[in-house]
């Protein structure tokens, strides 16, 4: 599972799981904090479709944490002001980069994939109730 995928699963559906994982296993990996959770901004670059060019739509608040073990770095960057999630995500990133606790992480991610399916299904059902059926107009 690539980084975009597992970060989206934890941030969207597994915030509690990320914090729980960090609190459970943080002592099992000896790491240094390079930068404690800090608030900053990410400028969002978008593609518009009139001329297919790029522009900056604005910034979003993020919280960033960096930790490391030796030369291996773990990064946690999340939307909004959220120190706990940022810290937990940096630890999970470090675990992936070090290749440790992989079975435990995969178990959690399997559960989050199920949670995603459930959420997307429910949300899609809700939205599709507002999909226009033009056939109804002739009745």
């Amino acid at each position: 599972m690539d980084k975009k995928r597992w970060t989206s699963l934890f941030i969207r559906y597994g915030r509690n799981e990320a914090s729980h994982f960090y609190n459970t296993y943080k002592d099992s990996a000896d790491f240094d904090i390079v930068s404690a959770p800090t608030e900053g901004l990410t400028m969002i670059k978008v593609r518009e479709h009139a001329e297919s060019s790029l522009f900056y739509i604005g910034e979003m608040l993020v919280t960033e944490t960096k930790i490391r073990q030796g030369q291996t770095v773990g990064m946690g960057v999340v939307k909004g002001s959220n120190e706990n999630l940022s810290m937990a995500m940096s630890f999970i990133d470090l675990c992936f980069n070090l290749g440790i606790l992989q079975d435990e992480l995969q178990d959690i991610l399997k559960g989050l994939e199920m949670a995603e399916q459930h959420y997307v299904k429910k949300k899609t059902d809700e939205i599709l109730k507002t999909k226009v059926d033009f056939d109804m107009m002739t009745e």
Partner: peptide
């Protein structure tokens, strides 16, 4: 408030 915060990153291209 925005002007007090550092800009840490630029996103990759966001496509609607």
């Amino acid at each position: 408030h925005r002007s007090t915060l550092p800009r840490l990153y630029y996103s990759t291209v966001t496509n609607t």
